[in-house]
Design a binder for these strands. Structure first.
Length: 275
DNA sequence: GTACGGCCCTGTTAGC
DNA sequence: TGCTAACAGGGCCGTA
């Protein structure tokens, strides 16, 4: 389930392999989630960016290919000019040689077992048809984003803090794993709806710590996440609470509780995340 | 504008 | 051993 660290890891790998290369051919699974891939034929990639959990491939014709990996999506780069195959292949792009390189034709492929991922092609910067992206909060590592702003964003609405984090609106790029980890680190109960200024600041600090750690470890691989080399992340070894319901809290050694909050499995320590 | 439930999907796992 | 049902969950959409 790729979140910010996983998507950023993939972005860093994809950029040098795609920028400056022209899409010679493309095809996709028939689902409209993936057919926009075909609209890239003829375009040249000029950059690979990221916003929250979305990958943004910019092109020389002022468009962007917007990709969300869903839960099981993955990009792979294959040094072959043949049309790829595979039970979970959802889209692929045949890339011509770059202007400053003499490599041949390669294929960028997008596989997605559960088909929760999606692709869109938009005018550069116009995300009005992608509501979560359009409404996404600041990037966690944006130096202009401070605790006061985070507190104000968290104050909107009456939903529980866990639900607010997953909505992407207070801050971008946080999913179930890093939300649970950050709430545990900050000692905040996922069921509370409002936080004071200091606790919001603590939560922002915790989010930055767990996301930075995830990035440093190449992401978290629980089952499906793979980087574009097919390699796994290492961050799963660092998790304190996610997926550990019923086990001892690493901090206070009481039993971790696991329950669904607004349909999302959440694990927390009822003792040291009491409020 | 906000809250909330249902849906999309398929591989894995638990239970019988 | 083999079958069935439950479960995982990010984002979107319709309804209240």
């Amino acid at each position: 389930m790729p979140e910010l660290p996983e998507v950023e890891t993939i972005r860093r790998q994809l950029a040098p392999l795609t920028v400056g290369r022209t899409v010679l051919g493309a095809d996709s699974h028939p689902s409209t989630k993936f057919t926009p891939a075909r609209l890239m034929i003829g375009a040249t990639f000029t950059g690979v960016g990221r916003r929250g959990k979305y990958l943004l491939f910019s092109t020389n014709d002022d468009r962007e290919l917007v990709a969300h990996l869903g839960m099981t999506g993955s990009f792979r780069f294959t040094g072959s000019d043949r049309a790829p195959t595979g039970a979970h292949l959802r889209a692929w792009w045949q890339l011509g040689p770059g202007q400053e390189r003499d490599d041949g034709v390669d294929v960028l492929r997008f596989d997605d077992i559960r088909r929760f991922g999606r692709l869109r092609v938009v005018t550069a910067g116009d995300y009005s048809d992608i509501p979560t992206l359009a409404g996404a909060g600041p990037e966690p590592f944006d130096p202009d984003f401070n605790a006061e702003q985070f507190w104000e964003r968290l104050a909107v609405g009456k939903r529980r803090i866990k639900t607010k984090l997953l909505s992407q609106r207070p801050i971008a790029g946080v999913g179930n794993i890093y939300a649970d980890e950050a709430l545990w680190l900050a000692g905040i109960n996922p069921n509370v709806s409002r936080l004071g200024r200091q606790r919001a600041a603590d939560l922002l600090d915790a989010l930055r710590i767990v996301l930075d750690q995830g990035l440093a470890n190449g992401g978290t691989t629980l089952r499906d996440y793979r980087n574009i080399d097919g390699g796994s992340g290492e961050n799963q070894k660092q998790l304190n609470v996610y997926g550990r319901g019923g086990q001892a809290c690493p901090r206070c050694h009481h039993v971790l509780r696991s329950a669904a909050i607004d349909g999302r499995t959440t694990t927390w320590c009822p003792t040291c995340q009491r409020h």
